[in-house]
Nucleic acid binder design. Structure first.
Lengths: 154, 154
DNA sequence: GGCAAAAGGTTTCATTTGAAACTAAATCGC
DNA sequence: GCGATTTAGTTTCAAATGAAACCTTTTGCC
C-alpha cells in the first residue's frame, strides 16, 4: 500500500520515520549507558573514539563524532573531572589540549565497548547481516544527501 | 571492510549512524520549514496530521505524532495564536479541546504539503523506489525493536 | 619583527526540552 | 450518588543545546 500520489502521509514521510526511529533507539541506548556507567551520549562518544583511535585533540574529536565544539568541550570537561581522560597541554600547539583516556578511562572503555556491542546485538537480533549492510549503506547515503542539499541551499 | 570482530567502531555502530543521519535530515528540513513558513517541527507535524486526518484532540495527536504531550500543548498554543488552528471546547469531554485547522490553516497546509513532498523528493533523488521501500521497512522495524526492548528492560 | 586575520577552546545567553507537580473534568467502585 | 482514581491538558523547573561573543595562541603577510 503506497501513498496516494498527491497526498502527504506523515507515516510515509521519510524524515519523520527517520526521526522517530532514531529517537526510539537513542532513548534506549542513552538510558542504558546513563544507568550503567553514568555517561551521557556525547561523553560516551568521546570515550569510544579515544578508546578506538587513541589520544586526540578536541577539534579532531568534533570532526570524528560530528558533534558541536561546545558539546565536545563540556563532555571533555566532565570526563576530565571524573578522571576518565587526561588533558595534557599540547606541546605542538599552545591553544589545544591533548586528550587521552587515563588508566581508569581505559578500564571503563574495556567494559563499555563490549556492553555497547552486546546491546546493539540485542536490538538488531531480528535483522540479517545483509539487511544490516543495507541499512548502513542507506543511512550513509541519506546523511550525504542531506548535507549535500544543505550545502546547495546555504 | 567490516568491523574487526571484537572492536567497537563508532562509524559502524548503528545507533550512531542512525542518529547522525537523522540529525542531518532533520536539520535540513527544520531549517527549510522554519525559513519558509515559520513553523517548528512539532508545529509542522500537527498541521500535517490535522490536514491529513481532520480535527482531533491533543491526546490523539500525541499518539499519532509520537510527541510528548507538553510538546503538543505548546505547539498547539502557538498555532492557535497564529490562528492556524481553532480550539473549540469538546462537548463530549470537558477536559479536552477539539483542534482543527482554520481556513487560514488549511490554506497553509495546501501550500506546505506539496512543498514538503517536493523537498523530500529532492533529498531522495538518488534512491530508487525499491530502496525507499526497504528503507521504510527497516526504519519501522528498528523503531519497533527499540520500543520492544525498552519495554522489556523497563 | 609586528600587526591583522584565523583557529582551538571556553563562557555566556537565550531557546528547547521533558519530567514532575498541578488543575479540572470524567470514571470507577461501592 | 459520592469519594478515590485516572485522564486531558497546562505550568513550573531544571537540564541540555548551540549560536555568538570572548580569550589565547598561531599563522600570514608586509
Amino acid at each position: 500500500m503506497k501513498r496516494p500520489a498527491a497526498g502527504l502521509t506523515l507515516d510515509d514521510y521519510l524524515p519523520y520515520r527517520l526521526s522517530v526511529a532514531a529517537n526510539a533507539v537513542s532513548d534506549l541506548i542513552a538510558g542504558a549507558y546513563h544507568a550503567r556507567f553514568g555517561l551521557t551520549v556525547p561523553q560516551w562518544r568521546l570515550v569510544a573514539v579515544l578508546g578506538e583511535d587513541g589520544p586526540s585533540t578536541q577539534q579532531a574529536l568534533c570532526a570524528r563524532t560530528r558533534m558541536d565544539k561546545v558539546t565536545v568541550s563540556r563532555a571533555a570537561t566532565a570526563l576530565g573531572e571524573r578522571k576518565l581522560i587526561s588533558r595534557s597541554p599540547n606541546a605542538a600547539d599552545g591553544r589545544s589540549h591533548r586528550l587521552g583516556l587515563t588508566g581508569e578511562g581505559q578500564a571503563l572503555y574495556a567494559e563499555v565497548a563490549p556492553s555497547a556491542l552486546a546491546y546493539e546485538a540485542r536490538l538488531l537480533e531480528a535483522f540479517s547481516p545483509p539487511e544490516l549492510e543495507t541499512a548502513h549503506g542507506l543511512l550513509r547515503r541519506l546523511e550525504l544527501a542531506a548535507t549535500a542539499l544543505a550545502a546547495k541551499m546555504g
